[in-house]
């Protein structure tokens, strides 16, 4: 019965569709068509210059045997596994901190948000200099601190062990966007709950875990999903900052797709990779929402 539409509603839908028809057409032409075409190309050998030749599943079976594919996948997942929890944790911490009644609060909020506005390419070049092994500001600070320990700061961009931590650091610098979402969620938490908790004499920790965290769980969920997608699509910063990096340590999935498509002119192979990446993203997202559905609490559910 829910799906039965009255005549008036039908008219409204028609009107609505009519209004957005230019965008629907545009999406279909410039987004929908390429997506469908890439499925087709992933089953062909296609170099742009010659017509595609169907080769069945060869691209996919070649990929599974391609150790560079596994290496780049490994790099990507490793990066995501380090940067996601750290990014979520840090942005939540900053949001909690900036939600306190402190002096110059608005100023601090602006300062912590600003880095996320820096475009990716300048960001990559800026951090290249921060990480510079001889003249970088980071090692300029670290080296004197480490001297008493007879140690020296790592060569961030030259040592394969340190390239991923360096990239995680650059990402943490830009947590402003997810911090703002947390901040908005924190301000939505009703004050009465805290007040009644205080009357009951509850500790700060209990307040955080039993009131704050459940009530901002939709924001955590949102940031988690966006974070998964963003870290799997990580491209511009490592591409500019490191290229493939020492021993391919910063060679991410997306960079291999780029190389296969535009350097080696293997569009079919690249399309197959892109589809595998889509499936991976989908699986991880579904997994995340399955797991978190038990923890996410929507206030409106109870109303």
């Amino acid at each position: 019965m829910i799906f039965k539409i009255s005549h008036a509603e039908f008219c409204n839908i028609k009107k609505g569709l009519l209004f957005i028809s230019p965008w629907i057409i545009g999406m279909a032409l410039f987004v929908g068509y390429p997506i469908v075409a890439s499925i087709y190309y992933s089953f062909t050998d296609f170099s742009v210059l010659l017509p595609p030749v169907g080769i069945g599943f060869q691209n996919y079976s070649d990929l599974l045997k391609d150790d560079l594919f596994w290496k780049s996948l490994n790099n990507t997942l490793l990066y995501a596994a380090i940067s996601l929890p750290l990014g979520l944790g840090l942005s939540l911490f900053l949001a909690l901190f900036l939600n306190q009644p402190i002096k110059f609060r608005d100023g601090f909020r602006a300062v912590y948000f600003l880095p996320s506005l820096v475009p990716l390419i300048p960001l990559a070049i800026l951090w290249q200099w921060i990480f510079n092994s001889r003249f970088g500001i980071l090692n300029g600070i670290l080296n004197p601190l480490l001297q008493p320990l007879q140690a020296s700061a790592p060569n961030w961009l030259e040592d394969p062990m340190w390239t991923k931590p360096a990239l995680v650091l650059t990402r943490l610098w830009g947590v402003g966007a997810s911090m703002i979402i947390f901040l908005a969620a924190l301000q939505e938490v009703p004050k009465e709950l805290y007040e009644s908790a205080e009357i009951d004499g509850v500790t700060h920790w209990r307040k955080f875990f039993n009131i704050t965290l459940p009530l901002i769980s939709p924001a955590i969920y949102f940031n988690l999903i966006v974070g998964i997608i963003a870290s799997l699509q990580f491209f511009a910063v490592p591409f500019v900052m490191l290229g493939r990096g020492p021993a391919d340590s910063s060679y991410f999935f997306t960079m291999y797709i780029y190389d296969a498509a535009f350097k080696y002119l293997r569009m079919g192979y690249a399309s197959a990779m892109a589809w595998l990446m889509f499936i991976l993203t989908l699986v991880l997202t579904i997994l995340a929402s399955r797991v978190s559905s038990r923890f996410v609490h929507y206030e409106t559910d109870n109303l």
């Binding site: 290249q128 200099w129 092994s133 001889r134 003249f135 060569n155 030259e158 040592d159």
Partner: peptide, 13 residues
């Protein structure tokens, strides 16, 4: 290796 990395890393890109 570490010494060379640090030296060459200083060149920047």
């Amino acid at each position: 290796l570490v010494r060379l990395q640090e030296f060459e890393g200083g060149f920047g890109r």
